[in-house]
Design a protein around this nucleic acid. Structure first.
Lengths: 248, 248
DNA sequence: CGGGTCTTTGAAGATAGTCAATTTAGGTGG
DNA sequence: CCACCTAAATTGACTATCTTCAAAGACCCG
């Protein structure tokens, strides 16, 4: 699974009941008892170094993974090497849902910084869902949310101009970070310009140019990976009219 | 729900057990007994005329809908009126999965020809899933398949040129039609050039021009909505290297 | 059979892509 | 700890693709 010898496959026993992400992640809406049952199913946490693959497209699918700490990208690759980043994931978010359909992972998942994930064996999640209706329901909701997110990315890729895409991207990151208790208007980009471009359907040069343009207009401050949103309302204004949802 | 007086809300009792789509649709892998239980849950079939909305974005979500006959598009609209078509659906395919996450439909679903759908009340599907593990599993697989499909659309919108997009689109239609027993290389487009363009992230003129180009090269014959794939292998060659999956 | 929608096609224009050169940053090893 | 080396980012000039604007033609439904 891992091609990296010094990878620490720390089999730390984790528990949802104590996890600071329990309001964001899978256990939403479960009572104490149900959460204990969920704890029993979650196999372990696994640590990954920056650049390491959590899974690869084509590998057998057995488990979903929830991000505990760190940051991931998922991407699908074409035969001739072109890469499409399909998402960036932060704590509490779930990876691997696309593997359920065929029992084979449909994308690559790569850590963009040193990270830690919880492994959720899918067949055990499935049977636990039958015992805990609210868990089953939440699970359906999570998958549905992913579909909604994907639809919004389609809207972005199909209808929006470079500036609108980048504004939507920055605002989306901002919103998700602030949900997790981080500053909404001052953050570090974990991904390269090329990865942003791949996600947004733009070339890296266009991403760089557009960020510079935003900075020239005084809307943001760019210092390499460090981004400050000075006038987020201007970014919102750019995006408004492109989508009612900002769950990109 | 419907704003159209002369709409026939034929409450035909339908049954999965007799349905010609049972190998394509929800009942895949169920035994006789389980299928009878599923029959009990499926509320009715509903007929829609061309142009009629099955549901609209923002409406309360209660049911999923399976296409029995006909053809649909789903789309998300931005505030300023721009439309992104997110999918075209044919018999045996499911609509409404995006509504589960928030109990509100996230897109519009519109019949592109006179059509008939089966209504699947979601809460009853959920509880039936707890009784029939294989149904629950199949349901997860269907949602996952939708996520995979969406990822492939992202790849298309993010990485492919106009000719590649259109080739992928035609081949995908062809493949799905042939699965349903129709001719793979001779079919009628149910949607307008504008709707194709919206789905593919192109303007209608570009769609029209690109179809003409394919025809000039002798790869297809275009007679308005009537399409014949003369050299599908050339189209495949165009697309190859853009994606390993053709489940767009 | 006629109005309106959909489609095709052309020409001009804009946005983003490509190619290339320079600068900067970050990681590695001495 | 510093210096080097490689990878990432910025910026400019030019180009290609797609869009926009426009006009004419075809079909379809009532």
């Amino acid at each position: 699974m891992s091609d990296n010898n010094h990878t620490s496959i720390h089999a730390l026993k984790v528990s949802c009941s104590n996890c600071s992400l329990r309001e964001l992640c899978l256990p939403v809406g479960l009572n104490r008892d149900e959460m204990t049952q969920l704890d029993a199913v979650i196999r372990q946490s696994r640590r990954l170094k920056r650049g390491e693959y959590l899974f690869r497209s084509g590998e057998g699918f057995k488990s979903l993974f929830a991000v505990r700490t760190g940051f991931f990208k998922t991407s699908v690759a074409s035969q001739d090497g072109r890469e499409q980043v399909t998402g960036f994931l932060m704590s509490g978010e779930l990876m691997g849902l696309d593997g359920i359909s065929s029992n084979v992972h449909g994308c690559d998942a790569i850590a963009l910084e040193d990270s830690e994930v919880c492994e959720l064996p899918f067949n055990r999640m499935e049977s636990l869902g039958r015992d805990i209706p609210s868990l089953q329901h939440h699970f359906f909701r999570l998958m549905s949310r992913e579909i909604v997110r994907d639809q919004n990315v389609m809207l972005l890729l199909g209808n929006m101009k470079a500036e609108e895409r980048l504004a939507a991207f920055l605002l989306n990151l901002s919103q998700r970070l602030s949900t997790r208790g981080f500053a909404a208007n001052d953050f570090i980009l974990r991904m390269s310009r090329e990865e942003i471009g791949s996600f947004l359907g733009l070339k890296l040069e266009t991403v760089s140019r557009t960020l510079s343009k935003f900075q020239q207009q005084g809307w943001i401050v760019v210092d390499h990976k460090h981004i400050q949103l000075v006038k987020p309302e201007e970014l919102k204004h750019l995006v408004s009219g492109c989508s009612h949802a900002n769950s990109v």
